[in-house]
């Protein structure tokens, strides 16, 4: 699971109002090279919750992203490469996503999060 996906997932449990971002529990992180595509990054930037991405990449051991960011940074090749690495190249392979409100764990196995709910959570 890429951090792009983490940035797009919220706790889906019935009644939860602050289900984003999901906390990341890490057992195994892998890095996979992805072709650099600046247009995609510029397109996605306004849709990314920046703080959630910074915290998620910190928890996965990558500390190169700035805490605060202005859209003008998108002109910097160096910044785009860091953004690219955090968003697309860091994978949570094994671990869990944890609902920030209820503490419910959604397991991530072989890179695939399981967001299926129990009957009493729907």
């Amino acid at each position: 699971m890429r951090l792009l996906t983490h940035n797009m997932l919220s706790s889906n449990i019935k009644g939860v109002t602050n289900g984003f971002p999901l906390r990341i529990e890490i057992e195994k992180v892998v890095e996979k090279q992805v072709e650099f595509n600046p247009d995609f990054l510029k397109n996605m930037f306004p849709k990314i919750e920046w703080k959630a991405l910074v915290n998620a990449s910190h928890s996965m051991g990558y500390v190169e992203l700035p805490e605060e960011v202005e859209p003008s940074r998108l002109d910097s090749e160096d910044f785009l490469h860091k953004f690219h690495h955090a968003l697309l190249e860091l994978h949570l392979e094994e671990g869990a996503l944890v609902c920030p409100e209820t503490g419910r764990r959604f397991p991530v196995s072989k890179g695939i999060p399981n967001m299926l709910l129990h009957e009493d959570e729907v």
């Binding site: 797009m8 997932l9 706790s11 959604f106 999060p113 967001m115």
Partner: peptide
């Protein structure tokens, strides 16, 4: 990216 979920549950808010 793969997600084991019912339709798009968990994605609807942010996506």
């Amino acid at each position: 990216e793969l997600i084991n979920t019912n339709i798009a549950s968990g994605l609807e808010e942010r996506l």
